[in-house]
Design a protein around this nucleic acid. Sequence first.
DNA 1: GAGCACTGC
Length: 667
Amino acid sequence: MSRFWKPGAERPQLLDDEEGGVIFFSAPSSAAGLYGYANLERQRQRLPVYKFRTAILYLVEKHATSIVVGETGSGKTTQIPQYLKEAGWAEGGRVIACTQPRRLAVQSVASRVAEEMGVKLGEEVGYTIRFEDVTNPGVTVIKFLTDGVLLREMMDDPLLTKYSVIMVDEAHERSLSTDTLFQRRRPDLRLIISSATIEAKSMSAFFSSSKKRPIQVPGDHIPEAVPAIISVEGKGFPVEIHYSEESFSNYEPAGDILVFLTGQDDIEAAVRLLMEDGQAPESRSSGLLILPLYSGLPRAEQDLVFSPTPKGKRKVIISTNIAETSLTLEGVVYVVDSGFSKQRFYNPISDIENLVVAPISKASARQRAGRAGRVRPGKCFRLYTEEYFVKEMPNEGIPEMQRSNLVSCVIQLKSLGIDNILGFDWISPPAPESMIRALEVLYSLGVLDDDAKLTTLLDPMISKMILSANEYGCSEEVITIAAVLSIQSIWVSMRGAQRELDDVKLRFAAAEGDHITYLNIYKGFLNSGKSPQWCHKNFINYQAMKKVLEIREQLIKLLKRLGMILKSCEKDTLAIRKAIVAGFFAHACRLETFGQNGMYKTLRSSQEVHIHPSSVLFRVNPKWVIYNSIVSTDRQYMRHVLAIDPSWLTEAAPHFYQLQKPYPAAY
DNA sequence: GAGCACTGC
């Protein structure tokens, strides 16, 4: 391996940190531009990260883990992989990987880097996201990928042998995937953790702990286990912060406004208020172009926020936190931060995930404010007091690991060969109840000791459903159901035209329930020749149907690899329903006979639940049902509901229902 | 008779 931290530079100065042996690096005072003078090259050298090039390479060489702290705009994502390649980390057939939490980021960063390197995307520089592999094995040396894809690759190759360095970008987001990624590693594999916040320190402590220390093998190239931290400043413009008790002018110089609210309802209400206000000619908002923005908004309406602001107007974008990280809005100079967002929480006792409005963290507040400083100095108006920000707002959000159902996470760890799940060392340990709940579900499904590969690739309940479908001879139908269940919704969002949508639904509705209804829709779609017009006419989301086709294809490939043969049961929906129950028996509910308004109770934990009004079984209220998921608002609503016969439950999972006997007064 | 922050395989 080459020694490369110079060209011609002296060894960078390292400072020891008193608290726990973490090594910090002191920034050099000037950057030396030793490279060519091509335009792109000069641009690269102007990026803030450039003057840390030597230091970063030195640290990566010396340390198994390096933590790079820097805001967006420092250039670390595009530059560090190139520095690594220039320094020889891609020699000898090795690959440099850089993960991103979002698909869009993977694509745009990869094309930017390919452009800077003057190569064709998909050759030396490539990317992999779900459904799209733009790499050329043997040629691609810098590979961008979503953290989810890397986790999948780990299932086949737990030591990630083809990579020399893995840079995990946006690690402060603390996604389930990245937190899981950090669990196992090869001693000589270099990890670069790139984070926007100095929470890096708790990560550093994690990587220093003895359990995580790579096995020390005698030899030259084994790096130090103690992680290094380096801080790289960004190049955003200053943003003035105004808190709520401070008065400010209603009139600000030109520039678009970005308002952060919590969800679709709030956003639509705000848009309505501002529009009504705008009707009056003398209204102060008449020069405003009001635009909502949230993930469920149809694509065409979303795109409006990117169109140039008409002359003499000011765009006001009222958004969820989709605008916090997922997309960048040029032209925003003012940010209004409500201080709240919708966040997911998981209750392992009831096994229900809730979406609740909760205060954001300081990290989020800073991220939101930063959105005002992309093009020039901006202002951020926080609708809370400075005292609240300083004293009460939490520094960081709660990691996803502590807010989620861990079923998939546990099965991934198991397949990585990690057996002592309960005693495992985490950056942020999840609640033991969540772990136990996940293990319980997996044991009852019988997939933990099973070496069926499918379970590591899909949600375990879906996997079990597909495996059972193979036995019942209805895999053709069940993979269609699996595909539909894994997308948001196959209906177009139509709040105004609810009646029409309901009428259309009746054309496809099956007495058995939603799952069979989806099969009818899929058949109709195929019969139409996969027609967008047919979808439009039936209030079905064409994009969603295309995704169903894609996921279906992916599942077919997977099943073929496992030696399964696709089989259709034609019109025998009993086989299909039994296969579904084999996967989802834990989600069984019984109608409360003496209750009112179609109240159900879950067999597992006697939770009160209702059939969601969007279900074809709404108001039909069969005595026994199973559901796919629960959405919880003022009530708990079951989504994707199927009518069942209770005898199928004991048939599919005798152990589970024996264990649960003290709870449900089921039979 | 109601409503889904955001990712990802």
